[in-house]
């Protein structure tokens, strides 16, 4: 079967500023791919080109066998029809750096809005599913809370539940811990780790190197709009071949040594008191071989 995501020669310019200069990669079903790199390197733009929040200026993107966009022979871009774009977006959940929850709706309504309106789900079914999802992210008791009544970590977990409610085949995570206090990042990462173990295909833009090492199958290192290095997560993160990758990892890990960060990440979720919930009921295995979709 084809890869779930196929990106070929992807280019994106904002005016004269070429942010992506020809990016090629694939994401297999069940695979977790982390995109790392300096800020401004184009990581976020890659994610946003996959669900057409940005319109690429060159190259081709295919998701689940459907062409999102492709460059024609004469260099012009052909994009999926509006209706097809919506169907592709149903298949692609996205979680944003700044949560983007709907502030005028409760956590529950945030989650049910799209299933009801886009998938035509009944209110009862949507509510039941939303409560399950809230339970699974450790927020079953916050169904009636409004976003501004929740912490950043809680808001982001609601946002993950909201994306999952559409039962996507692929989840895009765009620096989802960057806007929360460091001590709350752990609870978000725990949810993502569990999701990865359940076999979700994930494309994760992150600055959390320990998470990338721990959960990702593969890592792409992006700099100045090109993939400088890619490979098995452990290879790239522990034995980078390219000097730019080495310099980046050196700079990042100097500030937050990997092993220590990993400890604090694992601890945060437990301290937050989700020990009994679905997601946190077992100690999260750090061995990527333990993932359900491996082998």
């Amino acid at each position: 079967m084809n890869a779930l995501v196929q990106v070929t020669g992807l280019r994106k310019s904002f005016g004269d500023n070429e942010v992506l200069k020809g990016v090629d990669f694939e994401v297999e079903r069940g695979e977790v791919v982390a995109i790392i790199g300096p800020s401004g390197s184009g990581k976020t733009t890659i994610l946003r080109c996959i669900n057409l929040l940005e319109r690429p200026t060159g190259g081709r993107v295919e998701v689940d066998g459907r062409v999102v966009c492709e460059e024609l022979g004469d260099g012009t871009m052909r994009f999926a029809e509006r209706g097809d774009v919506r169907e592709i977006r149903e298949q692609v959940g996205m979680v944003f750096q700044r949560f983007n929850l709907f502030p005028h709706m409760t956590a529950l309504d945030n989650i049910t809005e799209a299933p009801k309106s886009v998938r035509g789900m009944s209110k009862e079914d949507a509510n039941a599913r939303a409560r399950e999802l809230l339970d699974s992210v450790g927020l079953g008791h916050k169904a009636d809370a409004y976003p501004l009544q929740l912490s950043g970590g809680q808001q982001q977990r609601v946002a993950i539940a909201r994306a999952l409610a559409m039962e996507p085949a692929l989840m895009l995570f765009d620096e989802v811990t960057s806007a929360v206090d460091p001590e709350l990042a752990g609870e978000i990462l725990m949810v993502m780790k569990r999701l990865a173990q359940q076999g979700m295909t994930m494309l994760v833009v992150t600055h959390e190197m320990s998470f990338a090492a721990d959960v990702a199958d593969r890592v792409l290192f992006i700099d100045h709009g090109v993939i400088v290095e890619q490979g098995q997560a452990r290879d790239v993160l522990t034995a980078p071949q390219n000097p730019r990758t080495r310099a980046f990892l050196h700079a990042v890990l100097d500030r937050a040594p990997m092993a220590e960060d990993d400890e604090s990440t694992a601890g945060a979720g437990e301290e937050a008191g989700f020990g009994g919930s679905d997601l946190f009921s077992e100690r999260v295995a750090t061995d990527p071989e333990a993932g359900p979709d491996d082998g």
Partner: peptide, 27 residues
């Protein structure tokens, strides 16, 4: 209204008519 609101709506597959009415306009 924060552009992130329409982006989140679009990422969820909502039509513009729907999210203008339900998400953007109320805010």
């Amino acid at each position: 209204v924060d552009p992130g609101q329409s982006e989140a709506s679009e990422a969820l597959g909502m039509t513009k008519a729907h999210y203008m009415r339900r998400i953007i306009f109320p805010q």
